[in-house]
């Protein structure tokens, strides 16, 4: 064989054959069934749990629980299918058509319809934490499948518990139970009183109103003076934010809470009789928070302080700030449900 022009054979063969290139995009491209083209959502099954948003490596997905929308930045999506693999309701899938290229960044938003009626036959729309029936064999499958690890099962001790604060109400446990012994909400066995989706008000409430402030749908009303606490069961979406916000862990979701708990355990709480207000203000250095009238010693400011500069003692009705540690960020002022703090200037 010759040592020069060895490629001539292939070149001439190519010359007389059809070109291998296609006239994409005028000729559409053929994808395989497995192609990871774009993320597709089945809006009917989505529960807005936000797992996809938390997992997305390129932060392309936004789940807005208030507005009930699921949005994806199409140009930011890297088609890795991490969201698809982690969706507890399997409502996401990979379609095999790539999103069309364009000159602008596109964000697609989908409305997630509210669920009508809910899972249980009981009234009020079904509670959003699972309830265990009698057939449970403590196999622990529900605990394994729970995407937020809210269920604890002990086979030996025959115990089953759900952390209402962590539960996002996705219902994966219900679907995964081999004995079909879990239901969302009250079910048949639960007392009617607890069939509401709303949080239940237990002992120890100081009417600080933190729950009302944190409720995304403004379903809770708290009156600190009148010592009343009420929830509008119709508006409540059962997200459980109030439960996790309450500094005294007074609230719980659904039937697991003591339904018989007296709603208005009106503890005699003196409002902050922090009488020597001006004296305190004058003594404190500038740029630290100052306590005004109305403090109920709920302790939210102490909890929220990023440097742990505030100490609150509810029993002793004491409130103090360590001026050296305080970094003047104002988080306490913003977090006080009674708006009884301000920065000293």
């Amino acid at each position: 064989m010759s040592k020069v022009l060895r490629f001539a054979g292939t070149a001439m063969k190519n010359f007389f054959s059809k070109p291998v290139t296609t006239k994409y995009p005028f000729v559409p491209c053929e994808y395989t069934p497995a192609t990871r083209g774009r993320v597709v959502i089945d809006v009917d099954n989505c529960v807005l749990c936000g797992s996809c948003m938390r997992h997305c490596p390129s932060l392309a997905i936004t789940v807005d629980r208030d507005k009930r929308t699921w949005s994806i930045q199409r140009m930011g999506c890297i088609q890795c299918a991490d969201c698809v693999n982690n969706c507890p309701k399997n409502c996401l899938s990979m379609g095999n058509q790539y999103f069309e290229p364009g000159t602008e960044k596109v964000e697609e938003s989908f409305e997630i319809p509210a669920k009508a009626g809910g899972a249980s036959a009981g009234g009020g729309g079904g509670a959003n934490i699972p309830v265990k029936g009698d057939d449970c064999v403590y196999c622990g499958l529900c605990a394994k499948k729970c995407p937020v690890e809210a269920i604890t099962v002990d086979r030996a001790a025959k115990s089953w518990a759900v952390d209402a604060g962590a539960c996002v109400g996705c219902g994966t446990c219900v679907d995964s139970c081999p004995k079909k012994c879990l239901t969302m909400g009250g079910g048949e066995a639960a007392p009617a009183a607890a069939a509401s989706p709303a949080p239940v008000h237990g002992d120890g409430c100081v009417y600080c109103g933190a729950c009302a402030g944190s409720c995304p749908v403004a379903a809770i009303t708290v009156d600190g003076d009148a010592k009343t606490w009420a929830v509008d069961a119709g508006s409540c979406v059962g997200c459980g934010t109030c439960v996790s916000t309450c500094p005294n862990e007074v609230l719980s979701m659904g039937a697991a809470a003591a339904a018989a708990a007296a709603p208005a355990a009106a503890k005699a709480v003196d409002p902050a009789a922090a009488a020597a207000q001006a004296a305190i203000e004058a003594d404190l250095p500038a740029d630290v928070p100052v306590q005004l009238d109305g403090c109920v010693y709920c302790g939210v400011c102490a909890k929220k302080c990023p440097v742990d500069a505030i100490t609150v003692d509810r029993e002793a009705k004491a409130w103090a700030v360590d001026a050296d540690t305080c970094v003047n960020c104002g988080t306490c002022v913003a977090s006080c449900p009674k708006k009884c703090l301000k920065m000293n200037d």
């Binding site: 070149a11 010359f15 291998v20 290139t21």
Partner: peptide
């Protein structure tokens, strides 16, 4: 054009 066809393109 000829170069392209020898390379399998249009």
């Amino acid at each position: 054009k000829f170069t392209a066809h020898m390379q399998g393109r249009k």
